[in-house]
Design a protein around this nucleic acid. Sequence first.
DNA 1: TTGAAAGCGCTAACAA
DNA 2: TTGTTAGCGCTTTCAA
Lengths: 343, 343
Amino acid sequence: MTDTPHKGLTIRDVAEASGVSITTVSRYLNGRFESMSDNTRRKIGEVIEQLHYRPNPLAQGLKGNQTRMIAVIVVNISYPFCVSLIRALSNALSSSGYNLIVCETGGRGEREQDIIESLYAQRVDAMVIQTNGDNNLRLAHIATEMPVILVDRQFDIPEVTSVITNNEEVSFSLSTQLFQDGYHNILYVTEQVASISTRMERLTGYLQACEKNHRTPWIGWITRDDLTSIEHVARSVTERLHQGPLAVYTGNALLLEQLYPHLRALDLVIPHDLGIATFDEPDWIQLISPRITYIRQPIDDIGIWTAQRILSALKGEPLTPLAIHTIPSTIIPGAATALYRGN
Amino acid sequence: MTDTPHKGLTIRDVAEASGVSITTVSRYLNGRFESMSDNTRRKIGEVIEQLHYRPNPLAQGLKGNQTRMIAVIVVNISYPFCVSLIRALSNALSSSGYNLIVCETGGRGEREQDIIESLYAQRVDAMVIQTNGDNNLRLAHIATEMPVILVDRQFDIPEVTSVITNNEEVSFSLSTQLFQDGYHNILYVTEQVASISTRMERLTGYLQACEKNHRTPWIGWITRDDLTSIEHVARSVTERLHQGPLAVYTGNALLLEQLYPHLRALDLVIPHDLGIATFDEPDWIQLISPRITYIRQPIDDIGIWTAQRILSALKGEPLTPLAIHTIPSTIIPGAATALYRGN
DNA sequence: TTGAAAGCGCTAACAA
DNA sequence: TTGTTAGCGCTTTCAA
């Protein structure tokens, strides 16, 4: 308790103080008590306790070539999705003695590449990545050497496992529901889709709903932090107003966060003239009323599933190649789209 | 580019392929070109390039007893303060080849202790911690062995450097300004202060402003996520309404986030009957109007300063013991407290 | 039930 | 200018 700590303390010190060889101490450290006298075992235990000895993980790793570090590479650590993912992973992995290295790509492919290479050179034991899709070959290759799991965004990379939510399906459901609720038009607001699967899938879900319901798709393109594009979209809302009530459905919470003030400025009655819905759960959702309808992603479950797969892969059980694991999202209806409903 | 990577590649392979000894390769890796023929240097460079060789940091660390990992321990990775801090540290440190291990205490002392011990055993090279103050002895001790910097919250731990903002001073300024703006009373809303220096200092600043302005302090205690306490505070707002306009000033953005909807429900005119101000910059600040007056902390600067100190400490330049570095915050006035002003 | 000895991949005296 | 050698702290045969 009050003694001095690892400061240069090695297995040799423990061995000497216990009057055994370092081999025996090593056995103790690795829990191989099968063939060890109770006496020795107890003695070593006491010495370790007293000396406050902790094995040097670097030295341990050097042999087995493992660092007990797992990398999680996300687009932006302040995005609620990323935060929740990191937390879920951290909880699940730290209890197994793994530490998390958190990195941000900012959504930039070259930065992502640098990070991947650096982490790879660092010999992390596994990677969890929300990729932009610009380094798929490299990731496929790395996946042959260590567990790699793609989260949130999925690409058909051979050998690489993905965990995603049912973006398309739930986007279709929400859109359909909005039409059924009585909104004649839905303005779907998205960023440039690029090669990002989530954006593509959510858009597709919306488009399918339009088709099934015989409505003309109506898409607002926003570049985040580009005020002009945001104002432009906000103004365009009025275009089809004469056709009846309309809904704005944003492809993620960050878009809504930027668009929302401009929607409020439009002076339309929510949910009567204008319904509002979004993918993701904005963390400020409680602050405004009427409550926006949103799609809640199962981020915790994604993190937990990912952690478990990594752990089992690290134990030798190989990851299924090209397996895409889908965990469904949930629609949380709010008063902001309750045109005829009572909620 | 297309070649196979580190997969079991060692310095020995490079040495053999270059026809030199591993020592020479090691020299190359460590940039000691002073005494090396250009020929050798070039040759090794080519081989490394071709083989895609990267030195194993574990093995490198084992010698120098350094992991090139720096731990940042925060209360909660979803708090904007923590996010910004992590990002600033990450940017500043990763360019120097350090990786960040991010850990969350949840504000719990025992958890903080576990994390500290684990990181210590892991042999991280340095620690940055937003501590709860329950492990000061341990931190003081650890600080004798590696750079330790306290951020946000400060304690008088010998040998340990702290970086904070001028909580008391800026809190005093804001409170004074609110009084001067014409608010007769300020309800200062805070969590239990416990031993947390930031809370204490912000409260003190408010109290001093009360004293200087001859007003009776008025404090609302909230336990976050305890609806009862929040509602209670919200209701208490009306108590002194008969004395004239009043302001609510919350000690941090999370409190305001929870309190704000209840304040709106009060049906008072902002800023005429009720002014609203807060410490911290809520990330939803743009979403509401009138704009709340807030105190912006220099989080980036805190992170940058911290990273620089750590880097220089790691280079041998010792940290000044018990140095407290203060970086001032800024008051950003908003219309929500513009009682007579024009903004 | 225990230990000696050979390495893991790298660095750094010390020699040459 | 280069190489030999002895470790860093630990794990793991192989023997005893």
